[in-house]
Design a protein around this nucleic acid. Structure first.
Length: 656
RNA sequence: GCCGCCGUAGCUCAGGGGUAGAGCACACCCUUGGUAAGGGUGGGGUCGAAGGUUCGAUUCCUUCCGGCGGCACCA
């Protein structure tokens, strides 16, 4: 007798060993038809798995949370079968499921073309329609190695050799095709369905190691239903529309060009956005007890040698020759500079913590293949700061930082933040007690700040544990932005100290921290988060005054002047164009508010406000309109426009 | 850095061994129009760079530069 416990708690008894298929059939014919796999005591297995003793069993159908991985993994197999049918000179390697689909890495002399992808996808659909049974076989290890070697699948043969000796070697056969695979799999290719699509072909290294051969990776997406597939493809389109490189150009925010690969030419509107963000951060940091500094771009290599960067980071550093054979490095980081400021004069324990912030412009020679719009550049500015404190202050500083970070993210439109906690790596500096202390301080602080965290074991820096802050954007993508690192090493290497209560010298701890990460990258994320439709306080141009007829020009100038005098970023559009044309253009430019003025408004001293995305207009007296828009445009930190930023004239103006 | 694809007007793209085309944008003219494209005319290109093949190269080949998609990298 075997007792099978189902998820609802009910128990079914069977005379002897049963397969998953039997269990599903015993529950109902519909379920037997829908079953893709079973979950035995929490482990997903093939439907054909024989259950020999009492167990908890769940039937996995298409809508089960575990089904997607199964479908995707099968889809990878179907891809591989299709490829080998069409291109027999191809060797297979690995083909796992991913978060949105699957890929399979192939070894083949000739590159796959986009046309090949179309053919392969067609063949995949045929294989699904053939509904080939998928059968698991256990093979003898030597036989498996010999088999794969004989048929010229050297990667598979090599892979088996690296598997642990006690691991069962399993083969999954579908139709005439087979693959080495741990499984589990669907009962037949027909169960996969047709909700998949091949997306691209790209390069990948065998076993992820650049010293190995380069393989061709075919990537696809796969879902439980056509609807899900459609939604996903729609999301991809949406992401493309939001692409900051496209919006950056369309909205006239910035450009990049080959003479300065990896750097940014900020245009007036983009730079306005940058400055707003910078002013906001400056206000928040000031409130949080930071002091701001500025350190040199060029520093003699001797300092980088002392800090350890020359040894560890040399290949990413740009250098410049100076007189007398001095080599200067363009700073890739701000920390050594901050330590130099810290070291001027004598620091008492009474002065700690010192929170030293810099909007530090850094340069790193990133590999050409890594560059990507504003997301990955060679010249960038960090919202960097280093907190010099005692070990006892780590906890309080961490809590304060987490709170500040959350509040900043919320202000900028991100509510969904997760924390990754990276603890001690195998090779590290500092004693175990120090690490214990630092790790404990960090985890407690994160909890105290009310943040959830996941462990990223062994991924801390060699000099201390770190927190990584990941925010999720409007279309579900994750971006690691904030970081908080405890450093016991740099103060030692650069000989920073303070005088303690006992009158003796002590080492301060350095906390490296950033919230945005880099302004460039964060602005890219902001552009994509808002799809260019910034909240009023961030919009480079907040209001455009658009005239209907030239009669209204003098009044339009007055309106714009009033808006600018109220600290708003307002432009006027006096061109000889129809109002519909102007509205279309400024709407496409994503200007939040268009103030339409015609003869009527000029006579009555009113404006018609039209919001981006809305079609209704609101007629207000000029005074009221200015007050209302000004109040709406107040930044979350409450900082006002700096005196120099307030336009005295009526701003830029287009006419003619 | 590695693999693949790409580079034609400011932008999006078509073309193709006999030195180039569209739409949008831009300029000028007409039009003064009430909430997402009014009409006309016109200017604009070393076809990414350098070499090679050829009577002739923007087109074919090689190298380089840059971009895109991944991989690797992101201390």
């Amino acid at each position: 007798m075997i007792a099978i416990t189902l998820p609802d708690g009910s128990v079914r008894e069977f005379d002897g060993p049963v397969t998953g298929r039997d269990v599903a059939a015993a529950i109902g014919p519909r379920l037997a038809k829908d079953a893709l796999a079973i979950k035995v005591d929490g482990v997903v297995r093939d439907l054909a798995t024989v259950i020999e003793s009492d167990a908890r069993v769940e039937i996995v159908t298409r809508n089960h949370p575990d089904a997607l991985e199964l479908l995707r993994h099968d889809c990878a197999h179907v891809l591989a079968e299709a490829v080998q049918e069409l291109y027999p000179d191809t060797q297979v390697t690995f083909g796992p499921a991913t978060e949105t689909g699957f890929y399979y890495d192939f070894a083949r002399q000739q590159p796959f073309t986009p046309d090949d992808l179309v053919r392969i996808e067609q063949r995949m659909h045929e294989i699904v329609d053939r509904d080939e049974d998928i059968v698991r076989e256990v093979w003898d290890r030597e036989r498996a190695i010999a088999y794969f070697r004989d048929i010229g699948e050297k990667y598979k043969a090599e892979h088996i050799e690296t598997l642990p000796p006690d691991e069962e070697i399993t083969i999954y056969r579908q139709g005439d095709w087979l693959d080495l695979c741990r499984g589990p799999h669907l009962p037949s290719t027909g169960r996969l369905g047709h909700a998949f699509k091949l997306l691209k072909v790209s390069g990948a290294y065998w076993r992820g190691d650049p010293r190995n051969e380069q393989l061709q990776r075919i990537t696809g997406t796969c879902w439980a239903s056509e609807k899900q597939l459609k939604d996903y493809l729609h999301m991809l389109e949406e992401a493309e529309k939001r692409d900051h490189r496209r919006l950056g150009r369309e909205m006239g925010l910035f450009h990049q060009q080959e003479e300065a690969a990896g750097s940014v030419f900020w245009h007036p509107k983009g730079w306005t956005l940058y400055r707003i963000l910078e002013s906001y951060m400056r206000a928040r940091l000031e409130d949080a007890g930071y002091v701001e500094v500025k350190t040199p771009q060029l520093i003699d290599r001797a300092l980088w040698e002392a800090s350890g960067h020359w040894e560890k980071f040399r290949e990413h550093m740009f250098t410049a020759e100076a007189d007398h054979d001095r080599v200067l490095a363009i700073k890739p980081m701000n920390c050594p500079g901050h330590v130099q400021i810290y070291k001027q004069g004598i620091t008492s324990y009474r002065d700690l913590p010192i929170r030293m912030a810099e909007f530090g412009a850094c340069h790193r020679n990133e590999p050409s293949g890594a560059l990507h719009g504003l997301m990955r550049v060679r010249a960038f500015t960090q919202d960097d700061a280093h907190i010099f404190c005692t070990e006892d202050q780590i906890n309080a500083e961490t809590v304060a930082f987490c709170r500040l970070l959350q509040s900043v993210y919320r202000d900028l439109g991100f509510d969904d933040v997760v924390v990754r906690f990276a603890d001690r790596p195998p090779t590290r500096a500092g004693s175990d007690e120090t690490w214990d202390k630092a790790e404990r301080a960090l985890t407690e602080a994160v909890r105290e700040a009310g943040l959830d965290y996941t462990l990223n074991p062994g991924e801390g820096a060699f000099y201390g544990p770190k927190l990584e802050f990941v925010l999720r954007d409007a279309i579900g993508r994750d971006w690691q932005c904030g970081t908080f690192q405890v450093d016991f090493v740099l103060p030692e290497r650069l000989d920073a100290w303070y005088v303690g209560e006992d009158g003796a010298k002590h080492r301060p701890v350095m906390l490296h921290r950033a919230i945005l990460g880099s302004f460039e990258r964060f602005i890219a994320i902001l552009i994509e988060q808002y799809a260019g439709r910034f909240p009023l306080w961030l919009a480079p141009v907040q209001v455009v005054v658009a005239t209907i007829t030239s009669d209204a020009e003098p009044y339009a100038r007055e309106v714009a002047a009033r808006m600018n005098a109220a600290g708003l970023r307002c432009e006027s559009d006096l061109r000889n164009e129809k109002i519909t044309y102007k509205i279309r253009e400024h709407s496409l430019a994503k200007v939040p508010i268009i103030a339409v003025v015609g003869r009527r408004e000029a006579e009555q001293h009113t404006v018609a406000l039209r919001r981006l995305g809305g079609s209704r207009q609101e007629i207000l007296a000029l005074d009221e309109a200015v007050t209302r828009v000004r109040d709406e445009a107040v930044p979350p930190a409450g900082f006002g426009p700096e005196p120099g930023e307030r336009s005295v004239d009526c701003g830029s103006e287009r006419s003619g």
